[in-house]
Simulated scan of single mutants.
Amino acid sequence: MDELDIEQSLAQFDREWEKNDRANTRGDRHTQLSLFTWEDSHFATSGDIEAETMERQLMDVVFSSLSPRQRKLLWQVAVEGYTFTEIARVEEKSESAIRKAYNRAVVTARKVCERIDR
């Protein structure tokens, strides 16, 4: 391989690298909006903004009707995925006490939802 072949190969390599490098840095232009997330929620909505707003308002009313303890339990179990055993261990209470407190919170939340639906 002589110097001319090496120079041509290097020039070809440089052209390909610039082409690939530019393509890799410009990928954001071709990304779908529905793939972007912000704090685990998609920017794109389901299309029914009114229904989503009403659901959020309902959840605000339900959560405001619960005690801070009940809100915390519902959040830990439903959102964070903790088990009753894990919560009981942290709070140094029995699992059955945590389970009963959680069930009371669910009953209270259901009663609030029933009152609102009427």
Rank of each mutant, 00 (worst) to 15 (best):
S41K: 05
N20H: 10
V61N: 03
E7C: 06
S64G: 02
S67D: 12
T83R: 09
S65G: 04
T83E: 05
A101G: 01
L58R: 12
R118D: 02
D48C: 10
M54L: 14
S65M: 01
S67A: 14
V107F: 11
R104V: 00
K93R: 15
A97N: 13
V79M: 08
L33M: 00
Q70W: 07
Q8I: 14
I6R: 15
D48M: 12
D2F: 11
H30T: 13
S34Y: 03
G47C: 12
D40T: 06
D21R: 03
D117K: 08
E3M: 02
E95V: 01
R29I: 10
I116S: 10
S96C: 05
L35I: 01
A109K: 10
A101I: 09
T53L: 15
S46D: 10
L58N: 10
R71E: 12
T45I: 00
D117F: 09
A11N: 11
V112Q: 00
W75Q: 14
I87A: 14
T45W: 07
I87L: 13
T53Q: 02
L74D: 09
E80F: 03
E86W: 03
Y102L: 03
Q32I: 07
S94E: 03
D2L: 05
Q12W: 00
F36C: 10
F84P: 11
T31S: 14
R56A: 09
A11L: 12
K19T: 09
E92V: 14
R115Q: 09
I87F: 13
Y82M: 08
D40M: 06
D28H: 15
N24C: 08
E7H: 02
Q12G: 01
D40N: 00
N24L: 08
D117S: 06
G81C: 02
Q12I: 08
